[in-house]
Simulated assay, not measured.
Amino acid sequence: MRVKVVCVGGGPAGLYLAILLKRQDPARDVTVHERNPRGSTYGWGVTYWRGLLDKLQAHDPASARAIEEHSFRWSEGVAHVGDLTTRHHGDEGFGIGRHRLLDLLATRAHALGVRLEYESEPTDPPADADLVVAADGVHSALRTRRAAHFGTRITSGRNPYIWLGTSKVFDAFTFAFTETEHGWIWAYGYGYSGEHSTCVVECSPETFTGLGLDRAGEDQGIALLEKLFAGVLDGHPLTARPGASWLTFRTVTNETWHDGNLVLLGDAAHTTHYSIGAGTTLALEDAMCLADALGAHAALPDALAAYQHRRQAELLSVQSAARHSAQWYENLPRYIHLPPHRMFALLGQRHSPLLPYVPPQLYYGLDKAAGRLEALRRLKRWLGPRAARALHARATARRN
């Protein structure tokens, strides 16, 4: 039987799923619909780590080789806190331009026989499709129409942020924290080619309004940010995409990921805070999991149920890490006045559920000791969630 698959959304998840489905069965009729023209995309560069590259290699060596070849690499992290700087060696990381990534995936999909329909956005799932994939992002129209069934929940974060680019090529994953009379403002910077880097700027709502960024025009706001981060930009400009604006992060969750022959993929199904740099990785892993499930189960309901069960289980720890990471930045004054090397160490531990409830200096000492002694490390992992729950309950009782 000739199976027809329609994917709505031509981002990394939708394109990679199409590649995997055609590799599984070249007879499949696979079409990807993308509302934007080919070559137009939002964002600058995306990050990933060696673990993703290994998975890409296992699923489709051709696209894995192309992605690695066009990626920018770093193996260090650096934090600038005011006039002080600390640098640490870490795991190998990769950055690639979103535009380049989409072009590589689209070229590979087309070579395998996938139909790519640009400037096309079906308002309703095609009636003759055996499987419809909603890969249309955080604002998914297909998901929104059935939000009650999916049990969609969308929550907004506290801190405003803006996604920018720069011609300054950062040689390490860079954190820059600048103090102003209205509070701290910070940037995450990473290279994604030999000519460009991504620069995400974030601050508290109080700093945002105090600096007048809520009222500034685009040019005025960019000029202020260039001044605030002049020390790390080295004279290079910041650039915004047309229509770019300050946002607050939207965390999307869904109780169920499928309805009949419609299934959610990538940001349509879930989002995780940008501060852990996992959005693209998770979207591509969704595609791998869905393709594996479709290959392993003859009946579509069984395949979709297996996909949802596996991915929701795998995402639990990542979503928890993302929540704690976002909260770390929302509570930056708690950590920012530590010596830079200690602040940077706790920045690396921001995913810990125990950290918000233990004095930062004490946590740093415990973590350093646990790093030397395996027994203490196991004890910390065991105690962490339990202590966090107990301390939270005690704090709640005191407030009441």
Rank of each mutant, 00 (worst) to 15 (best):
Arg73Asp: 07
Gly183Gln: 01
Arg158Asp: 12
Gln327Ser: 15
Ala141Asn: 09
Gly95Val: 04
Asp259Phe: 04
Gly39Thr: 00
Gly11Cys: 11
Leu346Thr: 04
Ala313Tyr: 10
Ala287Gln: 09
Tyr363His: 12
Asp219Cys: 03
Arg399His: 11
Ser40Tyr: 14
Leu56Arg: 14
Tyr363Gln: 13
Asp214His: 11
Asp367Gly: 07
Glu34Gln: 10
Ser193Val: 04
Phe150Met: 06
Tyr188Gln: 10
Ala395Phe: 01
Arg2Cys: 10
Gly97Lys: 01
Ile222Tyr: 02
Gly157Ser: 14
Leu338Pro: 05
Ala66Tyr: 01
Glu218Pro: 10
Arg2Ile: 14
Pro359Asp: 11
Glu76Cys: 12
Ile162Asn: 01
Leu84Glu: 15
Phe173Gly: 11
Thr166Tyr: 02
Leu347Thr: 10
Gly10Phe: 11
Glu92Asp: 04
Val138Pro: 00
Gly95Lys: 02
Gly113Glu: 03
Gly365His: 15
Val318Arg: 06
Ile222Asn: 03
Tyr48Trp: 12
Leu104Gln: 03
Gly231Val: 11
Leu315Gln: 14
Cys199Val: 15
Glu314His: 10
Leu332Asp: 03
Phe170Met: 03
Leu262Phe: 01
Ala216Met: 13
Arg372Val: 06
His70Asp: 10
Leu238Trp: 00
Gly221Lys: 02
Glu76Pro: 01
Glu218Tyr: 06
Ala135Cys: 09
Gly212Glu: 12
Glu218Lys: 13
Ser317Asn: 03
Phe175Asn: 10
Glu330Arg: 09
Ala127Pro: 09
Gly231Cys: 09
